[in-house]
Measured scan of single mutants.
Amino acid sequence: ATVHVKGVTYHFDNPEQAEKFAKRMAKELNGEVHVDGNTWHVD
């Protein structure tokens, strides 16, 4: 799974980790999470 945060890409072997990371980053950055298959975007 892949997480894109403000133009930076993070790779996770575990999709659950990717989801938790994306949601945590969105919270910290006051952003929104969008999911597209195995790819998470934090804007």
Rank of each mutant, 00 (worst) to 15 (best):
M25Y: 05
V33C: 04
R24V: 09
L29C: 09
E16G: 08
G37V: 04
A22I: 02
N30P: 05
A18W: 00
R24G: 07
T2L: 10
T9F: 09
V5D: 01
N14K: 09
A22K: 01
E28Y: 08
V5E: 01
P15S: 11
V42Q: 01
T39P: 02
N14T: 14
A26I: 03
D13I: 09
T9R: 08
K20V: 12
H11M: 08
G31K: 06
T2H: 08
F21T: 02
N38Q: 08
G7E: 05
Y10M: 04
A22Q: 01
T2V: 12
N14W: 08
V5S: 03
G37F: 04
K27C: 05
E19S: 06
T39S: 13
H34C: 06
N38R: 05
T9P: 06
H4T: 15
E32R: 14
D13K: 10
K23C: 07
D43N: 14
A1N: 08
A18P: 00
A26L: 03
A1S: 09
D36E: 13
N14A: 08
Y10F: 10
T39I: 13
F21W: 06
T2D: 06
A26E: 04
K6H: 12
V42M: 02
D43L: 15
H41M: 11
V8D: 07
V42S: 02
P15Q: 11
E19K: 06
N30R: 09
T2E: 08
F21V: 03
R24I: 11
G37I: 03
N38F: 11
T9N: 06
E16V: 11
G31A: 15
M25W: 09
Q17S: 12
T9L: 11
E32D: 10
H34S: 11
D13Y: 07
H11W: 13
V35S: 10
V8K: 13
T9I: 14
E16M: 10
N30H: 11
G31R: 05
G7Y: 04
A26Y: 02
K27M: 12
N38T: 10
R24Q: 15
T39V: 14
Y10T: 03
H4Y: 14
V33I: 14
T9W: 12
F12T: 00
L29G: 04
W40M: 04
E16P: 04
V35I: 08
D13N: 11
R24C: 15
K6Y: 12
D43Q: 14
Q17G: 06
K20T: 11
H11R: 09
V3S: 00
N14G: 07
N30M: 08
T39L: 05
A22V: 03
A26T: 03
V33N: 02
R24Y: 14
A18L: 01
D43H: 15
V5Q: 01
A22E: 01
V8Y: 10
H4D: 05
V5R: 02
F12Y: 03
D43R: 15
V3T: 02
A22G: 02
N30L: 07
K20H: 10
A18S: 02
E32K: 14
G31D: 03
H34Y: 14
G37C: 02
A18Y: 00
D36K: 12
N14S: 14
R24E: 15
K23D: 10
M25Q: 06
G7I: 02
V8N: 09
A18D: 00
H4K: 12
E32S: 15
N30F: 07
V35T: 08
N38M: 11
E19D: 07
F12G: 00
G7C: 03
G7N: 07
N14Y: 10
T9H: 06
P15L: 11
K23L: 14
K20W: 10
G7S: 05
A26H: 03
G31H: 04
G31N: 03
G37P: 02
V35E: 06
W40N: 02
A1W: 15
A26N: 03
F21D: 01
N30C: 08
M25I: 12
H41L: 12
Y10Q: 02
V8P: 00
Y10L: 04
K6R: 13
G37K: 06
E28N: 06
T39M: 11
G37T: 03
F21I: 02
W40Y: 13
D43P: 04
K23G: 05
E19N: 04
E16K: 10
E28V: 09
K23E: 13
H41V: 15
M25K: 08
E32M: 14
R24P: 01
H41S: 10
D36R: 10
D36G: 04
N38I: 07
K20C: 10
V8C: 09
K23V: 12
G37H: 05
D13V: 09
